[in-house]
Design a protein around this nucleic acid. Structure first.
Lengths: 112, 112
DNA sequence: TAATTATATAAGTATATGCTTATATGTCAA
DNA sequence: TTGACATATAAGCATATACTTATATAATTA
């Protein structure tokens, strides 16, 4: 098991210690999502979501990939913190439901 | 595996997302400690430590037991968050070293 | 009982955080 | 090229956070 210095780990936990960001990370553990989906699911303003996403991206916890108009985010599995994040997410209820709900509303983004 | 609502978990992670508190919790995973030991080990003021400890206690993450002049703190294993905390602590290097150091300095508290 | 030690609490303060509104950037499609 | 859409960024602001110093409380010991 890869150990992480306390200071670094504290930084990551602080990032996860926010309802919005924890939900985002949890959703990304199901599948990649784009910003507008977070806005829809979390019922928050676009700039607010964008700022949270940026913090996660700056910490290398998530990565982005542009697909045309949209930017999709996904968990960065290569990051040294990925194992801790998975450890934490084990304790969170699955988020599929919300994503299925989104699909029913026809608000899922598909661009393949 | 006991699932924890995202909001609650975020609160716990926010508490752990501080270097001082994460270290305290990590030390308590080795053995119970009293406040003056934290002050010594973390090289912080007594009120500062006391305030961090209170936050952890208020969240029921740790519990106290007075032994004469001293108040010892330990992880509250009955708490619903205990499993998550253990999950997180798995990723942290062991803290025994620091406690052994403390003993060598004769600053360990023994009151049995 | 008075002095000492351990801890908690209160009040003040500087900085961090998370939102808001407004605007900029980037892509697509008519 | 213009308009529409998706996203990012900037600036401002209210609240939260983590210290500090000063003081209170509680137990111990001389």
């Amino acid at each position: 098991m890869e150990k992480i210095p306390i200071e670094k780990l504290a930084t990551v936990l602080k990032l996860l210690g926010d309802k919005t960001r924890l939900t985002i990370v949890s959703l990304l553990n199901e599948r990649e999502c784009c910003v507008c989906e977070f806005v829809e699911l979390l019922d928050m303003s676009q700039p607010s979501i964008s700022q949270h996403v940026r913090k996660l991206k700056d910490a290398n916890i998530i990565k982005e990939s542009r697909k045309g108009q949209w930017i999709f985010y996904s968990l960065n599995k290569d990051n040294e913190f990925y194992p801790v994040i998975i450890s934490v997410l084990q304790h969170v209820p699955h988020q599929e439901e919300k994503l299925i709900q989104l699909e029913k509303l026809g608000k899922t983004i598909i661009c393949d």
